[in-house]
């Protein structure tokens, strides 16, 4: 069971890359290796051009459990400039899913 998860209000993700570099610094990952990646999506709604971003957790995400054990947030969550990421117990985060639109919940079972 994935006890912990990450809730991302991706409507507010501006694609700033802070989560990606925060992860690389925290884990000392070299170029090419990352626990989180942000993808860009450009589309025409008929009224306007939308540019949205979607952070995606890779298999390298360990939810920064050593940080969490020290009472810290995962590095990406802490540094997110939009403050649109939340870490917590999957069951708690799942309860809030319906409150907003354009939200994703990632569940991760670290290693």
């Amino acid at each position: 069971m994935a006890k912990y998860g990450m809730l991302i209000d991706y409507d507010f993700c501006t694609g700033c890359h802070s989560c990606e570099v925060a992860c690389q610094q925290e884990h000392n990952y070299p170029v090419g290796k990352n626990g989180i990646r942000v993808t860009e999506h450009e589309y025409d709604t008929g009224e306007k051009i939308k540019i949205d971003f979607m952070p995606f957790l890779t298999d390298l995400c360990d939810l920064c459990m050593p940080r969490v054990a020290e009472g810290e947030k995962p590095a990406c969550v802490k540094h997110c400039q939009s403050a649109c990421m939340e870490f917590g117990l999957t069951k708690d985060l799942a309860k809030t899913l319906g409150d907003k639109s354009k939200v994703v919940l990632y569940t991760v079972q670290p290693g």
């Binding site: 700033c16 802070s18 590095a75 400039q81």
Partner: peptide, 24 residues
């Protein structure tokens, strides 16, 4: 060896940009 945003600072409230996070 590492840099992190200061959550007690009113300017950024812990948040940081990728440029500062790559400072090492």
């Amino acid at each position: 060896v590492k840099i992190e945003g200061d959550e007690n600072h009113p300017f950024n409230q812990g948040r940081s940009c990728p440029r500062v996070l790559a400072l090492t």
